[in-house]
Design a protein around this nucleic acid. Sequence first.
DNA 1: TTGGATGCAAATACTTTGCACACGG
DNA 2: CCGTGTGCAAAGTATTTGCATCCAA
Lengths: 153, 153
Amino acid sequence: MALLRARGLAVTEQRLAIFAALAASRDHPTAEQLFLAVREKLPNLSLATVYKNLEALRAAGAVSDVNTLHEQGRYEAALPGTGAGRPHHHLVCVSCKKVIDLHDARLDALRVSPQETQGFEVRAVRVQVEGICPACRARAKGPSGSRKPVSRR
Amino acid sequence: MALLRARGLAVTEQRLAIFAALAASRDHPTAEQLFLAVREKLPNLSLATVYKNLEALRAAGAVSDVNTLHEQGRYEAALPGTGAGRPHHHLVCVSCKKVIDLHDARLDALRVSPQETQGFEVRAVRVQVEGICPACRARAKGPSGSRKPVSRR
DNA sequence: TTGGATGCAAATACTTTGCACACGG
DNA sequence: CCGTGTGCAAAGTATTTGCATCCAA
């Protein structure tokens, strides 16, 4: 809350309720699920408010996306025979959303112990390394230019 | 191609071109990027055809989504102080799209060597374990009922 | 010939934006 | 009081679907 005020964000009933609902939830709700949950308490809450708050809280560091890259589907060829389909991992630039393959035998060999998989039948273990790519790093500290990250949307 | 026919899929110019474009691409294109690329060769290709083919090829196992869960944003509370924000990993059911937290110190300790990160400034390493959750496993081999996976869309 | 595939347009789903009014600090 | 937040409606973007026609098998 002090965190919010420090960022110039007002502490409103809606904002608190949205954050509380998120913190209380043990799964990873979508905006709409949060909307439905919070609306029990605040019946005239609007879905747009939920989106605006999730974004505000994310910018303040109080909320994170479970899924970077959720904005658009991305595909890759995966033919078992061709090598294109070998399991591999990804390097993702959180600024420009670029995705680069990462091949690493050590990561491929990762296994998760059955006690931790809670009864799941494991199909794949994917490692996603998030960071800032060289181009975006250059842009960020850059010569002079704009500080705004590039959006691929 | 034999794979396609075995699945009852016809081998069309569009389907081949879409797959070829995907296999040729070293990044992880969106449906629209593929559409633009393939349209150079097949000018009256439609975007809907791209989507339909990606889905058909995915079902046949020739294409995979880089991102499971891309269909909707999912959030979690992440307050640095509260423990809610500790880095953690996820167990994802590829059938019903449920996401469950996975805490594992060994995974938290994963590091990727600088030679492999291609100049990225690494912010986080996230492990996503994909599989079929107990409920969906039960449903799949189930007593009698429908074989269709549940969609959360 | 026949069932699957294509292209178009319309429909749907998710998310963002503009704006008038309300409210926290 | 001032600036941010809210709710509504409209716009925007991503994806899916219906349907008439076309083409591979």
